[in-house]
Amino acid sequence: MKAFLSLAVGCLISLSAWAQETVAVNTGDIVSPELKNQTVTFKLLAPNAKEVVVEADFFEKVKRQTSFGVMEAPKQIPMVKGQDGVWTYTTSMPSPELHTYCFYVDGMRMLDPSNVYMIRDIATYTNYFLVDGELSQNYFVREVPHGTVSKVWYPSPTLGMERRRMTVYTPAGYEDSNKQYPVLYLLHGAGGDENAWSELGRAIQILDNLIAQGKAEPMIVVMPNGNGAQEAVPGEYPNSMYKPSFANPKTMEGSFEKAFPDIMKYVESHYRTINDKNHRAIAGLSMGGFHSLYISANNPDLFGYVGLFSAAINRQAKGENTYIYENLEAKLAKQFSNAPKLYFIGIGNTDFLFQDNVKYRELLDANGYKYEYMETDGGHEWRNWRKYLNHFVPELFK
């Protein structure tokens, strides 16, 4: 018996040591990325690797073949191997922003084992780090009152679902007051889900900081899942352990727009909302901008504020929901006869949707419809959508 106990204790000690060694092997004392003296240094322990390169969103862009065709992608830069088996690359500190990166070890993509901060965009994880500055100051968690973020299930009879999930932000102090609040409905792009804006878009930090600074009105923000065939984020509803995809069914064929009243009905019956046009806003990026355009055009009396961030514009739909996309000019005429207080359009000058947005603005201009326009550098990417949200939110509900 004593021998058995000794063996068991020995095994536990060995397992504990192995676990600690595993942690040490994965991370050791390596700090990566290391930000100091206006530089950023990436590090990776890979003593047996023949080649290690780093790819970061702020590197020079080059043309590269992808599954979507030839597209711009960040340049991959070789790292230098030290005698300790640690590969390093140091470069100048990038501009204030949330930056993403990954490694390629002998051609195989991998994340940084020394950096636990990761975000998922559709089916791809990347590491990230934040560089502080005027542009990015609201992307950080600060010493300010924090709102509450809830994952809320609601019924959607229009989509034939007993439960779907959305992310809901309520501002600091909501639980301790009887006050009613305006609502922003914030929609994600193709391949995204109800986690996209809170995780990739830093929406929670942006809202907390802007409200604390007195630059934005306290508001409820509803971030639904815009994929009409999904109940929630892949992996978080029954039978959903599949690889997330950019192309999802029931996204841009009218189902989501048709079912949007289900979301509003739940929100306005379960939260203390101010239920009139001047206290409702809708905005979204890419596909979410497309949804925002057509939901607001089909419901001209619902939203006093509309935001189109790198919005998809044109749609030739077939099927039972084509009415949603038909007669857009007539719908816009009705919408702008009692115009929204703010109709905002933002897009990057190298975005593949740029020309579609130019044509859409020409349509608005030809009819004398007033809107605010913001053009930024760069393409169809989160660094632009965070900028637009940071700019848009302070203009709401004034």
Rank of each mutant, 00 (worst) to 15 (best):
G191Y: 09
Y360C: 03
V131M: 02
D29V: 02
V183W: 03
S177T: 12
W153M: 14
N314C: 10
I211E: 04
G304E: 10
E326H: 07
Y266S: 15
F246V: 08
G304Q: 12
I77E: 15
E134W: 08
A232H: 08
V149Y: 00
Q65L: 14
A317V: 11
L207D: 06
M166S: 01
T167H: 05
N278C: 03
S292T: 14
T350W: 07
K243F: 05
G307I: 07
H146V: 08
P145V: 07
V183I: 04
K331M: 04
P218V: 04
G160K: 09
M71A: 13
S156V: 06
D208F: 06
Y323S: 15
I204Q: 11
Y271H: 11
V267T: 07
K250Q: 14
S269K: 13
G28D: 08
E55S: 12
F303G: 13
S92L: 03
V152E: 07
V54K: 00
E217R: 11
Q137A: 14
E326C: 05
F260L: 01
I313M: 15
Y185Q: 09
Q355L: 05
S310N: 09
S245P: 04
M374N: 04
G192K: 02
D208E: 10
Y271T: 01
P244S: 10
G228S: 04
P394Y: 01
W385Y: 15
Y242E: 14
V152M: 01
N349Q: 14
V393K: 12
V40F: 03
E134C: 03
K36S: 15
E199Q: 14
A297P: 13
S177P: 05
Q20W: 13
A17D: 04
A172R: 04
P249E: 10
P145A: 08
F344G: 15
A123N: 14
L7P: 03
L332R: 00
S14I: 10
S310V: 06
P340D: 05
S150M: 15
S114M: 00
L15D: 10
I30Y: 00
S114T: 09
T126D: 12
E34Q: 13
K243G: 07
I119W: 01
E231N: 12
I13E: 06
T251L: 05
G289L: 01
Y125A: 00
